[in-house]
Write a protein that binds this DNA or RNA. Structure first.
Lengths: 342, 342
DNA sequence: TATCTTTGCTTAATCGTTTAAACAAATATA
DNA sequence: TATATTTGTTTAAACGATTAAGCAAAGATA
């Protein structure tokens, strides 16, 4: 069963009594090799079950045809879909991707970057962990001279390409919607302020309130790690207020789900007593009862654009990156949790 | 900004006026290199920001220190957690993993296998796509002489290691539980019969009914692709029966969620009119209302064991695999959807 | 003092593929 | 017929790291 000694280009050469170089060229369809030889080479390659050795060609050419992808976690619909689309675009051009997850840990993210650089990837497409504030390791990627594309969670200071939705504006859309529904005391369970996207959502929330002449109540603006558990906790905190909110905008669907549970347990009527809006449009948001209004982040487009951006750099001989933001509009998917019957 | 020309072992050698071989040995802490030289080498390596070229060492040693992981999808809690644990174990031994998803497509899975073999991975840990019946590509892995470990979704015919839970017995545990709750007409929305794990769940269901002297009603045994959508459809189908079931055991949590939605929409009381049990213990199962009873698949253990099994082979010089099943017990997590108040 | 060991390094081959350069043979051009 | 061009191939170096083998110098042993 164990057939070690994989067949190499040399084995094919020996069978046909030609040089290894000729075989290599034949397999790459070089114009200087006769059709006859090419056919023979292909036939023998097939017979011997030849599989090219990626390590050797990558070493020689200096291109590994591998692209590293760093995401905080894969078990989120957004990231999983984004990865899928990145893969689709890159596979077409002969690239394969190495997916790594940071689990929102800075330490793990650093390890992942090292592992990817060590594997000699031709580029990295990344969405940063919540914890990441020190950009030293990302600078390492740039120092390695390979393109770095960020999406969803990026940092201006890195001065590289970024693809994401307009978080600031998304908050406006959400607040507009809630005001339209008649809500006047809108709370925000936001993500960590230090993470850019969450900061933008918070700023958008504050500015949108201002726009509608609604007062900003510090009690109603809460920072959270956006897990289900913390969503529960923060919702309980809001319910304990003397003056409860009449709407809660949660910066993540998981936390929104936690909030939903608490509201149901306390038999608060949704959306009439408190309207609820999440962010990210995870599949379960459409599936729970009541379904949760949420923001779709265009994972489809983001993945494609990130991959295409990488490919553009890959074609160029010299890489000269700069802060280049591609901001997509977001879609508010209005569902039962915020749509009041008139 | 762009520092191409990565520093190599040779650059270090030049600086110190020693040979590249000496540098290599110094970096590997060879006993035949003086402490003085070692220190100097490490210092220069650091100064020049030396990063070893994985491709070169992998080519030379024949070991890439990469392990391929194939899963149907990453946005499932089970697979995501398994991957995480595989990674944890392998990282410790200096291995990195390449995650690929088949999206339940046979074609994609084949492409992934080719890509992994091409990348010269030292082994593959895989869970097969639903669609996969042709094992030709998996045989290719074996032919390449690298270890193949399967988990969750495997095939006896492959004759390789398999780690999974006892699906057959899980069905027994579920049926026992439902009978205990007083259910007599237990339906099963199962996965595809051709997939081994789902087939085992179906067989377990049938045998468990027999054990309890319950008749097997063909109307109550339905095949499904286990998506939310299909879960809805199949539940509607069951509700349309003249003689409705009083319990439904769904072979996947997503489909169970779809079923739950339909039950709620039709205002069927859960669990009193119809009790519901899912499979896989996805996070949302605990989070929806009512929470769904489900089976925990020990993603933690499965990932660890799969990785450890690979490591064992990696240590051996010759690989001789055979059908070697490690079957773990499953845990039934009883929740509101099936627990009747007495 | 002569021989053996150990230490610390160098040389050179190697992994499998790619590719610039060389070259012989066939064909075209003047 | 002599020269230039094209065709189809070979030779050899290279990618960067590893490692068996070799070797000189220093130290140990008899």
């Amino acid at each position: 069963m164990v057939k070690k000694n994989k067949t190499t280009i040399k084995d094919i050469a020996n069978v046909l009594n030609i040089s290894a170089a000729a075989v290599s060229k034949a397999l790459h369809n070089d114009s200087r090799i006769s059709e006859k030889t090419k056919k023979a080479v292909r036939q023998v390659a097939k017979n011997l079950n030849y599989q090219p050795n990626h390590l050797a060609s990558a070493l020689r050419s200096g291109k590994s045809k591998l692209v590293g992808v760093i995401v905080p976690k894969t078990n989120s619909n957004f990231f999983s879909a984004t990865i899928h689309n990145i893969e689709e675009v890159l596979n077409e051009e002969g690239y394969n991707i190495i997916i790594t997850q940071s689990n929102e840990s800075f330490e793990k993210e650093c390890k992942n970057i090292d592992a990817l650089l060590y594997t000699q990837v031709d580029g990295i497409i990344a969405s940063m962990a919540n914890e990441t504030v020190n950009l030293e390791f990302y600078e390492k990627i740039k120092a390695a001279g390979i393109p770095l594309i960020t999406f969803d969670r990026g940092e201006n200071d890195l001065n590289v390409d970024y693809i994401g939705i307009d978080d600031y504006n998304s908050s406006h859309i959400i607040v507009n919607h809630l005001v339209e529904q008649g809500c006047q005391r809108i709370a925000h369970i936001g993500g960590f302020k230090r993470t850019r996207i969450f900061n933008n959502r918070i700023r958008g929330y504050i500015d949108a309130l201002k726009k509608h002449n609604l007062p900003l109540d510090e009690e109603l603006l809460i920072e959270s790690d956006l897990t289900v558990k913390d969503g529960r906790k923060k919702m309980e905190q809001l319910l304990a207020l003397d003056n409860r909110p009449d709407a809660v905008y949660v910066a993540g669907d998981y936390a929104a789900l936690g909030a939903l549970q608490v509201l149901q347990e306390k038999e608060v009527k949704i959306p009439d007593e408190i309207a609820l809006v999440g962010f990210g449009d995870e599949p379960f948001s459409a599936m729970v009862t009541p379904s949760i209004t949420s923001v779709n982040q265009h994972s489809y487009k983001i993945g494609r654009i990130a991959a295409e951006t990488f490919l553009e750099y890959a074609k160029k001989p010299k890489i000269e990156q700069s802060l280049n933001k591609i901001i997509l509009d977001s879609d508010l998917i209005i569902r039962a949790s915020s749509l009041k019957k008139k």
